[in-house]
């Protein structure tokens, strides 16, 4: 079924159409882009919250708790859980849903598990589009949960309005300290598992790192302590998420971010389309293969060949 046929259902709140449209986007179905362009004007209403942190920091439980709190406030929720795909087989085990059972029969909570399908940066290529579809569907809050253990997994900041970085008190070597890169993307820090020894120490450590940050900022990321098992600290966290949104609105940062994001996105799409178009034309043609052989044989160099091929491409387009 073409994606465009699902648009109506998504706008009407049909969960199954929502789920299928996300699949078509993930599968890069030829009609997906059209469907997304049809939905675009219905987006921009959801508050998108990113939750990231090292494995074992209790992100899923935290997301479950936040969701429960929002549900009490009658907000509708969309959740995207991203897990890495196996670099060898492309397969993936998507196991976060297991932690979110208490919402499993709530029709106003939509949970979607996604594999990165080889994409680097901590998110799947389709994540931002899936978030957008949930936004158009009418979800008030869309939460993106992703493993973030290092500097290469910070893409969540491009999708979310508010990024929560979760960590746990140190208890041995298996829990990684928050990496510097991930520190910089946080709008809110959460030290989860308050019952573990060393929670206070962790808070102090994070605050010390924040003090080292010399940038001028009107929002200093607060450091909250939660216990996702008991629910302690969750109301404060949900309030803080709301406060951050108000801050973005009041300071005009939300608009500014929106502009920047639109620019980035437009440029990304153009870049993707252009290169795709270029390569579709080139790959497999005898001239192209010949040129590559020449480069390999040192009879030509990649720099001038690239110049020449792009010039030819542009001429033909102008044609």
């Amino acid at each position: 079924m073409p994606a465009t046929k699902l648009v109506k259902g998504v706008l009407k709140g049909n969960r199954r159409d929502l789920a299928r449209l996300i699949t078509l986007i993930e599968n890069e179905h030829s009609s997906a882009a059209t469907a997304l362009s049809m939905l675009y004007k219905h987006t921009g209403n959801a508050h998108i919250v990113g939750v990231t942190g090292p494995p074992g920091s209790g992100k899923s439980t935290l997301v479950t708790r936040i969701t429960a709190k929002y549900r009490k406030r009658s907000k509708t929720i969309g959740i995207v859980c991203v897990d890495p795909s196996s670099p060898f087989t492309g397969g993936a085990l998507l196991g976060d849903r297991i932690r979110m059972q208490e919402h499993s029969l709530d029709k106003d909570v939509y949970v979607r598990s996604m594999s990165t399908r080889g994409h680097l940066g901590g998110l799947a290529r389709a994540t931002s589009d899936a978030v957008r579809v949930m936004d158009a569907f009418g979800k008030d809050i869309v939460i993106v949960e992703t493993v973030g253990a290092g500097q290469s997994e910070v893409q969540v900041v491009e999708v979310a309005h508010t990024v929560i970085v979760v960590d746990v008190p140190g208890a041995g070597d298996d829990i990684q300290a928050i990496k510097a890169g991930i520190m910089e993307i946080a709008d809110i820090f959460v030290v989860n598992k308050a019952d573990y020894p060393g929670a206070d120490k962790k808070v102090t450590e994070i605050n010390a790192m924040l003090d080292l940050d010399s940038r001028e900022r009107s929002w200093r990321p607060p450091v909250l302590v939660t216990n996702a098992l008991t629910g302690d600290g969750i109301p404060e966290l949900v309030d803080m998420i709301g406060k951050h949104m108000s801050y973005l609105q009041e300071t005009g940062l939300l608009k500014q971010k929106g502009l920047q994001r639109s620019r980035d996105e437009l440029e990304q799409i153009m870049e993707y389309k252009l290169t795709k178009e270029l390569f579709t034309r080139l790959r497999g043609t005898p001239e192209y293969e010949q040129a590559i052989k020449k480069i390999a044989g040192r009879n030509d160099d990649p720099y001038s060949v690239a110049e020449r091929l792009i010039a030819e491409f542009l001429t033909s387009v102008r044609g």
Partner: peptide
């Protein structure tokens, strides 16, 4: 096994 065969597997618990 399904993961290793390249599938995306969601385990419910």
């Amino acid at each position: 096994a399904l993961r290793d065969a390249g599938m995306e597997v969601i385990y419910t618990g």
